[in-house]
């Protein structure tokens, strides 16, 4: 049972991820605003952050960087609909456990989450 944070600018996407991971028994909090998500990390225990890269005001990499400052142990999976080498490399450098390209199969998502949480 892990505390999981999901951040995406598209509400449908966070709802879906929440459904998938809740069924796996995790406790999931969803956000569509970057700052709210960062604030949540500052105040609560979070084991894993599932972050979209393309957001509203910031990008997922910047959000991850801020969250890592607040919680260096935080694990993360990056989701993106537009993968680039640059964002993938930076995400890995910042400690992201996976870099997944949308649309990801929910089975694959479950496996990646499980894998990252066990590391």
């Amino acid at each position: 049972m892990a505390e999981i944070l999901v951040l995406d600018d598209v509400l449908d996407a966070v709802v879906l991820v929440k459904k998938v991971l809740t069924r796996e028994g995790h406790h999931v909090r969803t956000f569509t605003e970057e700052q709210e998500a960062i604030d949540h990390v500052a105040r609560h225990r979070v084991d894993l952050a599932v972050l979209d890269i393309k957001l509203k005001k910031m990008n997922g990499i910047q959000v991850l960087e801020e969250m890592k400052k607040l919680n260096p142990e935080l694990r993360a999976i990056m989701l993106t609909g537009y993968p680039t080498l640059e964002t993938a490399r930076t995400a890995i450098e910042l400690g992201a456990g996976e870099y997944c390209v949308k649309p990801i199969d929910i089975l694959e998502l479950k496996e990646k989450v499980a894998e990252v949480l066990t590391r």
């Binding site: 609909g81 537009y82 929910i106």
Partner: peptide
């Protein structure tokens, strides 16, 4: 094409995931 694909990916992810559930 890249932009269109990107814009399609997120709704497609939501739709596909929901359908799988």
């Amino acid at each position: 094409a890249g932009t269109a694909a990107h814009e399609l990916n997120t709704p497609l992810f939501a739709a596909l995931g929901t359908a799988q559930l």
